[in-house]
C-alpha cells in the first residue's frame, strides 16, 4: 500500500511540475500587469507543438529530411519563440486594455486561446502525436526502491525545481526583481525614477509566456502533444492560484507541486475523484481562508 501511495505520489509530483511552472508564470504576469492570462495553457500547448515541429516536421517542410532539431535546442529556442509571441500579443493587443476593467484582458486572452487551439486542431490530430525526440541520455528507467521511474520524468521534476527557484531568486533577490516588485506596488513612482515601465511590462509578459513555452517543451516527451493539452490544464491552474493566492511567487510554486501530489495520492484511494479533488480543495480554501493560503487578506 505504501509503495502504491509513493508511486502515485511520484506521478502526481510529475503533474505538479506543470502546475507549478504554469502558475508561476501566471503569477509573475498577474503581479505586474494585473492581467490573468487565459492563453497561458494555449501557449504551453503551442510550446509543446513547436518542440514537436522542430524535431519532426521542420526538416520535411524545408526539404532537409534529416534535420531534427533536438530536445536540448528546443529547450532554448521554444521559450524564446513563445516569449516573442507573448511580446507580440502584449504590444499589439493587450496594451490597449490596461485602462479598462481587467475582465477585458481575460476575455481577450480567452479569444486568443480559441484561435491557437483552433489552428492546431486543423493541422494536427486532436487526439495527440507522440514526441519522438526524447534525448538518448534520458531514456530508460531508474529503480527508486518503491517503483521503477522513467529517467526523463525524474529529470523533469529536478529541472523544474531549478527553474522555479531561479525565477524566485531573480524576483526576490536581484535588482531587476526589485524594480519589478516596485512596479507592482506603485508604477507611477517607479516611472518617476526613470525606469521604463511599459518596456518592463512587455518584457515581463514575454518572460511569463516564455515560461509557459518552456513547460510545453518539458511536457512534450511525457504527454502526447495535442491541441487540447492546455485547455483543461489552464482551469486546474486557475484553481491552483486561487488556492495559493496570486500574491506570492513561492506560494504559486509550492501549491503547484503540493496539489500535484494530492491529486496523485487521491488516485490511490478513489480514482474518479482525482479529476475534481483540486477544485474541491479550492472550495475548502474559499470557505476557510478566502484570500488563498499565501495571499494577503485584503
Amino acid at each position: 500500500m505504501l509503495k502504491l501511495i509513493l508511486a502515485q505520489a511520484m506521478l502526481g509530483l510529475n503533474n505538479g511540475v506543470f502546475y507549478a511552472m504554469l502558475s508561476l508564470g501566471l503569477a509573475v504576469i498577474f503581479g505586474l500587469l494585473n492581467v490573468v492570462n487565459f492563453a497561458h495553457g494555449a501557449l504551453y500547448m503551442t510550446g509543446a507543438f513547436l518542440a514537436l515541429i522542430l524535431y519532426s516536421y521542420l526538416g520535411v517542410w524545408i526539404g532537409i529530411e534529416d534535420l531534427h532539431i533536438n530536445f536540448w535546442a528546443a529547450l532554448i529556442i521554444v521559450p524564446i519563440l513563445i516569449g516573442a509571441l507573448g511580446i507580440l500579443i502584449e504590444r499589439t493587443m493587450l496594451r490597449w486594455l490596461y485602462r479598462f476593467d481587467p475582465i477585458y484582458s481575460l476575455l481577450l486572452t480567452f479569444g486568443i486561446t480559441l484561435v491557437l487551439q483552433g489552428l492546431f486542431v486543423n493541422f494536427f490530430s486532436a487526439s495527440g502525436t507522440p514526441y519522438p525526440g526524447q534525448p538518448e541520455s534520458l531514456r530508460g528507467v531508474v529503480d527508486l526502491g518503491f517503483m521503477i521511474f522513467p529517467k526523463y520524468r525524474l529529470f523533469a521534476i529536478g529541472f523544474s525545481i531549478v527553474i522555479c527557484l531561479a525565477v524566485w531568486f531573480i524576483i526576490e533577490r536581484t535588482r531587476i526583481g526589485a524594480m519589478l516588485r516596485a512596479g507592482t506596488e506603485n508604477p507611477d513612482l517607479v516611472k518617476a525614477f526613470g525606469i521604463n515601465v511599459p518596456l518592463m511590462v512587455t518584457l515581463t509578459f514575454g518572460f511569463g509566456t516564455g515560461l509557459a513555452g518552456l513547460a510545453g517543451v518539458l511536457a512534450a516527451p511525457i504527454y502526447s502533444v495535442g491541441p487540447l493539452m492546455g485547455a483543461d490544464l489552464i482551469i486546474i491552474i486557475f484553481a491552483v492560484v486561487v488556492i495559493g493566492g496570486m500574491g506570492s511567487i513561492m506560494g504559486a510554486v509550492v501549491s503547484g507541486f503540493a496539489l500535484g501530489l494530492v491529486e496523485g495520492i487521491t488516485k490511490v484511494f478513489y480514482a474518479p475523484a482525482a479529476n475534481t479533488v483540486i477544485f474541491f480543495l479550492m472550495v475548502v480554501v474559499l470557505l476557510v481562508r478566502p484570500a488563498g493560503l499565501f495571499g494577503r487578506q485584503s
Binding site: L108, F110, G111, I112, T113, L114, V115, Q117, G118, N122
Partner: peptide
C-alpha cells in the same frame, strides 16, 4: 473555432 476566437479578440 478560429473565427469565433478572432471575433472575440
Amino acid at each position: 473555432q478560429v473565427v469565433i476566437g478572432a471575433i472575440f479578440v
